[in-house]
């Protein structure tokens, strides 16, 4: 089982959700499966807390939601908005800076 996500990882679920939805529209279950897959279960996202996160991103205008019927089942598909793409760029830059700093510290190549 994956370890619980520590607090300094706050913001990572948002980054992951925006990154994955930037590729294509998805519904919650599909997204949860993909998060497990792409992070190789390294990040434990309680699957039920994915929905508050999706609704929050939608309320902030970073995602849009629309109901679609696929295979006879009605699903709510989420997609990224223009504001969401801008937020994704900012978060990606921040994360790259942090991960780069941590990598440097761990390698011991800093001052």
């Amino acid at each position: 089982m994956a370890a619980q996500t520590p607090s300094f990882m706050a913001g990572v679920p948002e980054l992951l959700v925006l990154r994955l939805l930037a590729r294509r529209e998805m519904y919650g279950y599909e997204l949860a499966r993909l998060i497990r897959l792409v992070t190789r279960e390294a990040i434990s996202l309680g699957e039920n807390v994915l929905y508050p996160a999706l609704h929050s991103l939608e309320a902030r205008g970073l995602l849009h939601a629309r109901r679609r019927t696929v295979g006879g089942r009605s699903r709510v598909y989420y997609g990224i908005t223009g504001a969401g793409r801008r937020r994704l760029r900012d978060l990606t830059r921040q994360w790259q800076r942090i991960s780069g700093g941590v990598a440097t510290a761990l390698a011991g190549t800093g001052p």
């Binding site: 699957e47 807390v49 929905y51 508050p52 309320a59």
Partner: peptide, 18 residues
Amino acid sequence: RVGPDEAFVRDMLARPEL
């Protein structure tokens, strides 16, 4: 896997935008 209701409610209520 889905998790307890409590966590879901807590997370919904922690977001004032909702």
